[in-house]
Design a protein around this nucleic acid. Structure first.
Length: 393
DNA sequence: CAGGTC
DNA sequence: ACTGG
């Protein structure tokens, strides 16, 4: 089957990059299941890349593109009937407005003005980064978001991404297969699995899939949610949007694998709690850069006390939309995504020299020194790049 | 060592 | 304590 099976047709919304930049909002550690492809035959002034993912109610693939003046969207359906219904009722249009919170928070630039005035020290300095432009907090599905952030603990973003894709492919049937817009192969899309689609003996399966100790957290949390909501977990979690922060936090933290940080992430990103500032190692480091950051909190290991005080410090700086400001700061501080180039390395023996020098400085090498020496050696070989070759498109 | 948690 | 980008 080739693209497009049953597209609802491309539509557009006038929208500036300052109000939303897809590339700065979708792949920055809040949502993990978007596919990203370059567009093969793009002309100047037109979109250069496409983001796409499976979305439910009704099941389809939502594709997004962006130019400096417009956001383009379409739903691609496995059957014609639903595609026509989308066109008639504007289903994907409504979904885009809800997901990016364009109606609830239409003026992102006004928020930036506010944060700049409140916190010239931190925000004012970070916002000049082009990766800080148009960062929006997404309004995500609570069930998916919960599983995603239980999975996130002690994991890199690329690894969280691959685990969640594996999760979707394993427990949700293929929805539709589309040719990639870069003309490089095709992608089979899967909805995020519903709780009822998950098998018994989930923990063992998740462990074999690479979830590690988070496997038991997910199985336990699922069981707890089944006891509370029976077959209606997703609808039950959606209802938490209407309750206050302290009530919801209590319920979230009661789940295995959900502590303060994960609970704050879930509430910020899918429960309409825009003031919440999740404190991870990254945000803690950002806070520590502020001249007014209390010295007694500097270089302290994370604890409930340090968490609360750091969060309060940032809330005082960033105000009632503090969680959104945090999203900007976090996105701008992320390492640049790896460019798709094949790096041809020539290994030169300078690494040996470096290692020997270290040994000379400290003849009694303990384990830690050996490890740092290895890392230094790796860095040294990586800097010697003789050629870069663009990957075949 | 990673958007921490048990 | 799991595990690999």
């Amino acid at each position: 089957m080739s693209r497009p099976p049953f597209p609802s047709g491309w539509s557009s919304i006038p929208l500036s990059l300052k109000n939303l930049t897809l590339a700065n909002s979708l792949p920055v550690g809040q949502s993990f299941l978007w596919h990203r492809h370059a567009i093969a035959s793009s002309t100047p002034g037109c979109p250069t890349e496409e983001f796409s993912r499976a979305v439910d109610n009704p099941p389809r693939v939502v594709c997004l593109r962006q130019s400096p003046s417009h956001l383009y969207y379409t739903g691609v359906y496995p059957n014609e009937h639903d595609a026509l219904a989308d066109l008639r009722r504007g289903i994907t249009k409504d979904w885009v407005n809800d997901y990016f919170q364009l109606k609830a928070h239409p003026e992102l630039e006004k928020m930036y003005d506010d944060w700049r005035a409140r916190d010239p020290e931190l925000f004012g300095k970070v916002e000049v980064n082009k990766r800080a432009v148009g960062v929006r907090v997404l309004r995500q599905d609570p069930w998916e978001c919960l599983i995603a952030f239980i999975t996130s603990t002690n994991n890199h973003i690329p690894r969280i991404t691959s685990l969640l894709h594996r999760f979707s492919q394993s427990f949700s049937p293929p929805l539709v297969t589309l040719h990639n817009p870069d003309n490089d192969g095709e992608t089979t899309y899967h909805l995020f699995p519903t709780p009822t689609a998950l098998p018994t003996k989930l923990e063992a399966l998740l462990r074999s899939m690479g979830f590690g100790y988070r496997a038991s957290f997910i199985e336990s949390s699922l069981q707890t949610l089944e006891e509370e909501f029976k077959e209606e977990i997703e609808a039950g979690l959606l209802r938490w949007r209407n309750q206050d922060v302290d009530t919801v936090r209590e319920k979230l933290v009661a789940l295995k694998g959900v502590g303060r940080k994960v609970a704050d992430c879930v509430m910020l990103m899918c429960m309409d709690k825009p003031s919440l500032i999740p404190i991870d190692t990254h945000v803690a480091a950002i806070a520590a850069r502020h001249p007014a950051f209390p010295s007694r909190l500097r270089n302290k290991p994370m604890s409930k006390q340090v968490y609360d005080e750091t969060q309060q410090f940032l809330l005082d700086r960033w105000g009632p939309m503090g969680g959104w400001c945090q999203a900007v700061m976090f996105a701008a501080d992320l390492p640049e995504p790896k460019p798709k180039v094949k790096v041809v390395k020539t290994k030169v023996n300078t690494s040996v020299t470096v290692k020997r020098k270290l040994e000379e400085v400290s003849p009694t090498l303990n384990l830690k020194r050996t490890r740092s020496a290895t890392r230094l050696e790796l860095k040294q070989t990586r800097t010697i790049v003789t050629d870069e070759v663009k990957m075949e498109e």
